[in-house]
Design a protein around this nucleic acid. Sequence first.
DNA 1: CTCCATATAGAAAACGTTTTCTATAAATAG
DNA 2: CTATTTATAGAAAACGTTTTCTATATGGAG
Lengths: 350, 350
Amino acid sequence: MNATIVEVARKSGTSLSTVSRVLSNSAYPVNEKTRKRVVEAAEALGYRPNSAARMLRSRRSMYIAAIVPSLNNPFYSTVISAIEQEVLASGYMLQMYSSNNDPELESRLLDLIGSVQAAALLISSMNWNEKLERKIRDLGIPAVFFDQIPEGYSGHYVGFDFHEAGRMAAEFLISEGHRDIAFGCGPFDRESRRQYRNGFCEVLDEAGISSADAIVSIAGAGSMHEYEMGVAIADELLRRKGMPTAVAVINDIAALGVIKRLEIGGVNVPFDVSVMGFDDIPYGFMMTPSLTTIRQPAEETGRMATRLAVSLIGDPGSECMNEIFHPVLIRRESVRRIGRIERKENSYND
Amino acid sequence: MNATIVEVARKSGTSLSTVSRVLSNSAYPVNEKTRKRVVEAAEALGYRPNSAARMLRSRRSMYIAAIVPSLNNPFYSTVISAIEQEVLASGYMLQMYSSNNDPELESRLLDLIGSVQAAALLISSMNWNEKLERKIRDLGIPAVFFDQIPEGYSGHYVGFDFHEAGRMAAEFLISEGHRDIAFGCGPFDRESRRQYRNGFCEVLDEAGISSADAIVSIAGAGSMHEYEMGVAIADELLRRKGMPTAVAVINDIAALGVIKRLEIGGVNVPFDVSVMGFDDIPYGFMMTPSLTTIRQPAEETGRMATRLAVSLIGDPGSECMNEIFHPVLIRRESVRRIGRIERKENSYND
DNA sequence: CTCCATATAGAAAACGTTTTCTATAAATAG
DNA sequence: CTATTTATAGAAAACGTTTTCTATATGGAG
C-alpha cells in the first residue's frame, strides 16, 4: 500500500521522529544533510502523509466544511467556487454539502461534519432555531453564516443588504418613470425575502404609491420551481384588469418565467411592461430582452466568508464578526424608461 | 471538547471495547442491557465518533473524491448534485474539487486526494498522459472517469456517445429539410468534441453535403467564454456571402451567443436561420426562442459513476467496467422545418 | 579543562478508535 | 458431572502520525 513514515525512516537510515520533523517541516532543527536524505527517500517511495493519522495526533483539522442550499443555483455555485479557491489557498481542504434548505438534512449534515472534525463551518441556511443553534454550538468550531442571515441569528456572518436591494429596485423603477408597479414573489418564508419586500414597499409608500396592491404573492410557490412561479405571477397579472407598467420579480429565474408568459400573452417586454429581476444569474445578459437586475456579489461573499472563518480558527471566543455587502444595479434591456418610445439599441454583450 | 469513547465507557460503567462495539454496530454480540446503557451515555454526552481515528485504525476510508472541470457549468453542477446524493446514500462522504481543466491544478488535487485516503476517485478530465496515469495508479484506489473520456484512457468509465450526438444533430437538421448547414465550434482540443464533429460530418457527407465547408471553427476560442465564442461564430457567419439555413453549435451557451448576435444582425432565429444547441442547460427552455438541443443525461451519469466506483471499492483487480449513455433530442423552437412558414405555437413550458 | 548551552536525533508516548486476544460465566453436549 | 461450546466483556495492541522526553555530540564561556 502507501508508504509510511517508518519505511521512509528505514530507507533513509534515520529515525521516524526525524522523518516526521522533515516532512511536516516543523520548526525543530534538523541537519541539512539528513533532511536531504529523508526528502529523497520520501520522494523515491512516493510517500504521501496519512492525513487521518496526522489530524488525529496533531489535533488539528485540515477541513473546512460548507453547507449551501443548492449546487444547481448559479448564485451558490459561484459562491462555492470562490470558497473552494480560498479554502485551498489557506491550506485547508473543503467538504461541501447541499441541504436543499431541508432542516432534517441540514441536521444530518451537521452530525456528519461534527464527526469529521472540521476546523470551521460555512453555512447558508434560512432555518434558525434552538436545535440548529445547539447543534452548531456543540460542534465547538467557528461558524460563519453567509448570504441570507436567518432571523434571530447572532453570530459571525457575511451578509447582504436585501432591504437596500428592495429599495434599489423600487427606486430605479420609479426613477425610470414608473408609477404603476407590481412586485411578484412567492411566500415570504425567509428573512431575506421579507427584507427585500420591506425595502421595496417602503420606497413605494414614500412615493405615495400604495404598496399593498402591488404585491403579487403566489401562495403555493414553496414547492414550485422558480420559473413556474414566474409563470404564475404573469398569469395573475394577465388576469387583473389593469396591467402595471413595471413588475419587479423576486429572482431572475422567476423573471424569465414572467417574461415568457407575458410575451405569449401578447404583452411585450419591455415595451408594454418592464420586468426587473434579482440575483444577476450569468444568463441574464444572454436573453432577449436582456435582464435588468440587481446583483449580489457572489465571489466576494464566498471569499470573505472563508477568510473570516479561517481567521476565527483557533480563537473561538472572539466577539461577533460580520460584513455586509451591498447590491449593485445591473441596467439592461428588460426595463424601459416610461415616456421613451424609441427602441433601445440592442447589444449582444454586457 | 468533544466526548471520546473513553468518557462514554466511564459514564456507562463499561469498557471502551464494549462502547466501540455498540457505537460502531459491529457484528460482535453485546448484551441488550449493556447496549442500552452505552447508547444512553453516548447520547447524554453528545458523543460523535472521531472519523480520523476511525479511518486510521480501521484502514477504511469514508471519503469518495471527485474532480470536475468546473462547478459553474450547469451540466457539471447537475452531475455533482447526483454524485453527492449517491455518495451520501452509500454511506460515504464527498470531497469535491474543480480543476478548470488545468493539468497543473489537477495534479495538485490528486496529491491532496492521495493524502486524505479517499476510497475512490471520480474524475472528469480532458487530459490524459503518462504523468496523470501514474498519479492515478499510485493512488491505489479505483478511479472512474465520467462524461468525457480522454483519448487513450483505458479504465473504468461512465461515458457518453458524443459521436452519436453529432450524428443525431445532423440527422435532425436534415430531416427538418435543411441542406445548407453550418457547424459552429471552437478548437477540437478534446476527444469529446472531435467525436461530436466526426459524427456530425459523417452524416453530412452521407447526405452528399460537403462537411468541409460546414465547419466554422473559432481558432482562439480556447480562452474565450463560450458565449463570446458563439458571438464570434455568428460574426463569421454574417461575414460570409451565403447564410446557411441552419447552424449546429457545440454547446448551448455558445448557441445563445449565436442567436443574440444573429438577431442583432437582423437575422431572425428560427425563421431565417435555425440554431441547434448541445448540452440542454436548464435555461434553454426559458429563452425566446427556446433552444432545440441535445441532452446528455447528467444525473444518470453522476449516479452511475458513483455506483460503479462504490462497487469497485475493495475489489481493485476487476477488469475495466464501463457504461455509455446516449443522447436525447430536445425539440423546441430554435430549429424550424424548412418549407413551413407559419409561426410555431409558442409555449412557455417544456 | 570544566560546565553549560546548543544542535541534532533517536525512543517513547500519545491521539481516539477498531480489532485481536484473553477471561469469565452460563449453557449445552456427552 | 465433566468437557466443551457460547455469550459476553475487559485488556491490550495496533493504525501512522506528532510531540515530548531523553541522549549524545559539539562548541563556547569561564
